[in-house]
Design a binder for these strands. Structure first.
Lengths: 212, 212
DNA sequence: AAAAAACCTTGACCTATGTCAAGCAGGTAT
DNA sequence: ATACCTGCTTGACATAGGTCAAGGTTTTTT
C-alpha cells in the first residue's frame, strides 16, 4: 500500500523491499483510550504510527501517569525494547482513533538490518528519542513547576487554545491545581494575560524567560 | 596504536580504516576533577574514554549536580550532540586521572558513516544510552528516596564497601542526611544490617523488593 | 431549557525531602 | 597523646508541590 511508502522511515525502500515489508506487517486500527502495550509487556512487534496520536507514559508509586512523550504519524514506536528484547519500559495509549503498522520485528531484523538506509533511519529515530528523554529529564528533574509552565507557554502557547488546562497539566505532570495557581501568579505579576477563551497573551517574554 | 584497536567500538575496522582514524584523532590525558565539556558547549569532537572514569551530570536551578551517568573505558561519549550538532546537554567531569581519544567528528562522519559495522556500533551505543536515560527517569521521577536506596542496595550492595555514604548519596541524587535516615529506617525495621565497616548485609530481600 | 457532568479556582492542610546546625566518631598528622 | 579533618547522625525547621474539599463556571446531554 501507498500508506507505507509515505512513512518517511520507509520512503527509500525499493518496490521489492516494500513487498517484503508488506508480508511481515499488518495495519491495525485502534480507538482512543485503547492501550497498544503496557509497561512490562514483552515486545514482539515494532509499531509505526500511521494515523492518530499515541501517548507514552510511566506510572509512579502512587499510580499517577508520568507523561513521557506523544507520537504523531510516522513515528517509530519502541525500537529500544525490540532491539534489546527487554520489556517495554512504558505504557502506550491511543489518544484518538488511530492506525498503526504492526511489523513482525524478528522478520524485519533478519531481512532489513543490513540495509544502510534503514540503519540510518533507525539511528535518526533513536537520536530523536534520545533528545526526548533528555527533555523529559530536563522537565521533570531540573525544572520547577513555574519553570515548566513558563517553558510551555513560550514554546507551545497556542496549545492553550486547543487543550483544556487539565490536559496541559497532565503533559507537564502537574496537578491542575498547581497549573491554575501558577497561571494566576503569572497573571498577577503581569507576565501574561488571559482573555475570554483560553487565549494566553504573553506580555513579558523577557521575564518569563527568566523564570527558567 | 593498539589502544584504539582494543576499543570494542572500533575492533572490527580494517588496518587501513584504523590508519584513517588515527589521522583524525588524538589521545588526551586529563586529571581527576577536570572538565571534558560543559553543558551548553558546542560539540566539535566525539570522545571515546580509554582509561579512567567520567561522570556526566546536569545542574539544576539551585546549582546542585544531578548525576546522570558514569562512563567506563570503551564508552562513546556524547554522540547525540555530535549527530544533531546541538550543544552538549550535560557536563562531563573526570572522576580520576583518565585518557580519552578525541576524534574530529566532521571528518569521522565523512569517512566512516557508510560503514555498516560502524553504524551498528553507533546504534548499539545509542541504545545503551537510551536505556541509561530511561533508568535515570525511573530513578529520579518514579522512585521515592526509600525505593532508590532499596534498589541500590539490591543491585549494587557491594559498592557500599568502596564508596563513602556521601558518594552513594550523590549517585542517587539524595542528600547524605536522607540516605542516612533511610538506612537507619531499614536497619530498625530489620531489612538490613550494618556491621563494622560499611558492609551491608541484606536480611530481608523480599521486603526490600517490596519497597520498590 | 433543564439537568448532569466536567472543569476551573481557591483555601486549608499534608508530606517528602532538603537545609541548617550541632554533636560525635574514627583516622591522620603533628 | 593531642588536635584536626572528614564523614556520619540526628534534630528542628523550611518549602514545593500534592491532596482534599467546596463553590462557581462552563460544557454536554437529555
Amino acid at each position: 500500500m501507498d500508506r507505507i511508502r509515505n512513512v518517511s522511515c520507509f520512503s527509500k525502500l525499493t518496490d521489492e523491499q516494500l513487498e517484503k515489508l508488506k508480508k511481515i506487517s499488518v495495519i491495525k486500527k485502534y480507538k482512543g483510550k485503547e492501550i497498544l502495550f503496557y509497561e512490562g509487556d514483552a515486545p514482539i512487534y515494532l509499531y509505526v504510527l500511521l494515523q492518530g496520536t499515541l501517548k507514552v507514559y510511566k506510572t509512579n508509586h502512587k499510580g499517577q501517569q508520568i507523561f513521557l512523550h506523544q507520537f504523531y504519524p510516522g513515528g517509530l514506536v519502541a525500537e529500544l525494547a525490540n532491539f534489546e528484547n527487554i520489556p517495554y519500559p512504558a505504557t502506550a495509549e491511543f489518544m484518538s482513533d488511530s492506525e498503526v503498522l504492526r511489523i513482525d520485528y524478528k522478520a524485519l531484523e533478519k531481512d532489513f538490518f543490513k540495509n544502510p538506509e534503514i540503519s540510518f533511519e533507525i539511528i535518526k529515530s533513536l537520536i530523536a528519542k534520545h533528545k526526548i528523554l533528555i527533555d523529559v529529564i530536563q522537565k521533570e528533574v531540573i525544572l520547577t513547576a513555574d519553570a515548566k509552565v513558563a517553558k510551555f507557554i513560550l514554546e507551545n502557547g497556542d496549545l492553550f487554545k486547543t487543550l483544556k488546562n487539565t490536559q496541559v497539566a497532565s503533559i507537564l505532570n502537574l496537578t491542575p491545581e498547581t497549573l491554575s495557581r501558577t497561571l494566576s501568579k503569572f497573571k498577577s505579576s503581569g507576565l501574561i494575560e488571559l482573555d475570554d477563551k483560553h487565549h494566553i497573551r504573553v506580555l513579558n517574554p523577557q521575564k518569563l524567560e527568566e523564570v527558567l
